[in-house]
Design a protein around this nucleic acid. Structure first.
Lengths: 222, 222
DNA sequence: TAGATTGTTAATCGATTAACAATC
DNA sequence: TAGATTGTTAATCGATTAACAATC
């Protein structure tokens, strides 16, 4: 119960634990030690135990961890069983892909509305869900009270729409628009996703790979 | 010239510097001090200077940095002007969105081939680029020598295709398939992207936001 | 020259790893 | 009980911040 400021580094590792444990559970693995898990995940057993103990003693000495129970505990912490009311704004290539590819319910999110400012897109369906026009955002939010918004709009539109949504009660943004979103109010959560940034770390790595044989070969990327 | 093992933390910040400086340059800003930039980016001036000095003295005492020159230097380091021969495998929702949404040339990548195992997808076009069948990967690679592959295939297919591609000379993977890719050989670079992981950090934040007023409000997410 | 701001060293902070006593 | 493995403290390591001399 006593939540004592978990570090961001730990939080960012939780989804990965959840994923690995889910796959182990699916494979029928019942128990696992921090050592085994660490080898499979490519990290130290110490770190796993340290991380998990931020939240409580999920293991049992001499035995290890129950895979399914641990997965569920972490799922609980992440909130995968919640039903966060979520809207998605901007149904270009990326927006459509996010809407159909990301399994929102598995992340504790319920996609309750899709929006686009293009009248040729609004009015149509996407996978059976109607796409509304952005002009109707205000009315929709007053009725439906979404708390999370996925932004797949152009860079210049993002801050404006985000600001409007904040005034309509949205408290968290998953932002795919180019350009970082930021709010003074620390209660408004923002997760800026920049796919190109991720690609650039690869090209950086390739660029310096030709100057090989030189350094100690510590070029691992995960 | 003397490359002395840049830390991953620094490397991951480079694309963001590049982005901000690009926008400043577009706005016509000629010079900027580490202090000004730090305020705009939400970080310390110390960190900026420390980061940049891993690569050399790009600034000038008493003046600051020339925006355009610095942007170009960082672009150079990241390799944005390269022409890495790149293929994309898997043209489902996500694959199509990546192919059309990510501006590969801006990341130093040249998309030279699209592949899918579905015969109804292969043979068609995507934005004027032909989609080949995965069966033709081997022949294609022997001729075209791609060095980077974007994987948007299902989880179970990813390791198999990746292994095949490594044997065909591919040295870097931008992996969007569920499940992490990993190679023993440290010369093979992998960047695993898990969009759901990113979303889960938001839902985690929301989940604990109700227990507000308690902690010191250090809930910033960037 | 005086003012500003870098490049760089030193101090601090946080995160990771190692070690081991507790305990199943 | 003996063996295994956790929970947790202490040691190490790396990354961030602060400070300041160098210099434009």
């Amino acid at each position: 119960m006593s939540k004592q400021e978990i570090s961001p580094s730990v939080i960012r590792r939780l989804p990965r634990y959840h994923r690995f444990l889910g796959e182990l559970a699916d494979k029928g693995t019942v128990r696992i030690s921090s050592k085994e898990l660490s080898q499979q995940m490519g990290m130290t057993a110490s770190q796993i135990r340290q991380d998990l103990n931020c939240f409580g003693g999920f293991g049992q000495q001499g035995y290890g961890y129950n895979v399914r129970a641990l997965r569920d505990e972490i799922g609980q912490i992440l909130g995968v069983s919640e039903h966060r009311r979520t809207i998605l704004v901007g149904l270009g290539n990326l927006g459509r892909a996010i809407a159909t590819h990301v399994i929102f319910p598995q992340c504790g999110c319920e996609l309750i509305g899709l929006f686009d400012s293009n009248p040729f897109v609004a009015g149509r369906d996407l996978d059976g869900m109607p796409v509304h026009h952005t002009d109707t955002l205000s009315g929709f939010c007053h009725q439906e009270h979404p708390e999370l918004a996925v932004l797949c709009v152009p860079e210049n539109a993002a801050p404006v729409i985000a600001q409007q949504l904040v005034s309509l009660g949205v408290r968290a943004f998953w932002n795919f628009s180019h350009g970082d979103l930021h709010f003074e109010d620390p209660a408004i959560l923002v997760e800026n996703v920049h796919l190109a940034d991720s690609l650039l770390t690869l090209t950086y790595g390739l660029g310096h790979e030709s100057s090989n044989e030189t350094a100690g070969g510590t070029a691992d990327s995960e």
